[in-house]
Amino acid sequence: MHKKLVSIIAALGVTLSCTSNALAAPLQEQYNSSLQQYQNALKGVQDIEGKISGIDNEIEKINTDISNTGKKISQSQDKIAEEQKKLNESQEQMDSEQNTYMQRIKAMYMSDSDMQYLEVILNSKSFSDLIANVENVKNLVQYDDNIMNNINKQKQNIDKQKKVLEADNSKLEKLQSQNNSKLSDLKNKEAEQNKLLASEKSEEDKHKADMAKIQGAMDAEKKKLQALSVPTAPSSGNQHANTNITQSSSGSATGLAVVKLASQYLGVKYVWGGTTPAGFDCSGLVQYVYGRLGISLPRTSEEQVGAGSPVTGPLQPGDLLFFEPGADGPGHVGIYAGDDTFIEAPHTGANVRISPLRDYCAARRIIK
């Protein structure tokens, strides 16, 4: 898209240089007006795409949070189930001991065990023997009560732990609900931005078509003048355009190899988390292309911005460009392709493409 624009402007420079006094002024005015509107629409498209890319990054983080919180909820529910199992086992043991206790009480009354306990005490041979026998009888009477008390305390402790786990699980589920609500809001925002993007692209295409028509009219006028032997010496503006192209093509052969390889994946769909030609996200494309050339790079744009060295002079093909600065680092990355363009996997709903160069927050040179 941008290269075509450069070509149109360069061609316009040639036309104007050879026919500055011959072309009708209205054509030039119309072209300038369409060019300005086209550039405004193009900037609008780039701004909206930047917003969509930022929303994509937020969605990625929320999806990670949802996944992590889901794992914590699953672990919490497993612990609650484990404590409930212990609680059920404790209740069963308590019921069993209580039943045994009741059977013993019933047997005691039926067999006059109180008299048996009394005989044990009265038949004591000495005072110390009496004290011991009284203590034994007391222990026998309290034995079942102690068992019941211990089981009941254990049950209370388990029940208390279960309530703590349930409270923690409730907090996690509330957090998960908030995460899902945020995700829904972000998707709605992204849908709104996509509608605006479609509108801006339609406006861009309209003015691009208008420019082509006007350029055609100017080319036709130029041919008429050339038939009258009007000189056609190149203008200084055209030489400047050619100089830019030459400079952008003079990068290292390896840097150009990066661009050439990346261009093979133009049209591949954007896939969040994608790292193969089946679908790329921005950093996945960069990592894959450099990996194919034997250069290992980190996975994310936040990590890739630390690779290589900062670019201090003019950009060269193969340089990495970073956009959307954030607290964790830049949220988007692309590969400089020369001629003020770069290759990127832009955002959900778009494909790998060549885009006009826009403001970036960092540039790194991987290949010296």
Rank of each mutant, 00 (worst) to 15 (best):
Q193W: 09
T300Y: 03
E82K: 13
N99E: 10
D56C: 02
E166C: 09
I245P: 04
K224T: 06
R299V: 03
N242G: 12
T232R: 03
N68T: 15
I8V: 07
K79Q: 11
G308Q: 04
K368L: 08
K72M: 02
S170W: 11
D340G: 11
S202D: 13
E221G: 05
E173S: 02
Y117L: 03
R358D: 06
A11F: 07
K208D: 02
D112N: 15
A350Y: 06
K223H: 05
E344N: 15
A262S: 05
K260E: 15
V45A: 05
L297D: 02
Q161K: 11
D112H: 15
S235A: 10
N99W: 05
L225E: 01
K125M: 06
L261Y: 14
N88L: 07
Q264H: 12
S113A: 14
K222M: 08
G279T: 15
E302M: 06
M110T: 14
P234L: 01
K61V: 15
L315M: 09
G329C: 04
I151D: 04
S113C: 04
T348A: 04
D359M: 06
K51D: 13
R292V: 10
K201Q: 13
S229Q: 10
L297V: 09
A198H: 14
S283L: 02
E49Y: 05
M94V: 11
C282V: 08
R365Q: 09
Q37W: 01
A132V: 04
K223C: 06
T19C: 09
E166A: 14
V141R: 13
L297T: 03
Q77V: 14
Q247F: 09
K61L: 12
G306M: 13
I62Y: 00
A345G: 03
G308D: 12
Y38L: 13
A191C: 08
E302S: 00
L321V: 15
A25T: 08
L130R: 06
A220R: 14
I80L: 10
V141F: 12
Y38I: 11
D219S: 06
Y265N: 14
M102C: 01
L183R: 04
M94A: 15
G331C: 03
N149V: 05
L165I: 06
P234C: 02
D319I: 01
P330Y: 11
G326N: 05
F322Q: 10
R365W: 10
P231M: 05
K182C: 09
D339R: 07
Q46D: 07
G54V: 05
K182F: 10
A350E: 02
N244R: 14
K174M: 10
N88R: 12
D168R: 14
A307M: 06
G216W: 01
Q91R: 08
L261V: 13
Y38G: 02
L228W: 05
M94F: 14
W272F: 13
L196G: 10
G267F: 06
S128R: 15
Q178M: 11
D114I: 06
Q193H: 14
A241Q: 10
Q84A: 07
N68M: 10
R358K: 12
T15K: 00
Q178G: 07
L183Y: 00
S199P: 04
N238R: 15
F127C: 11
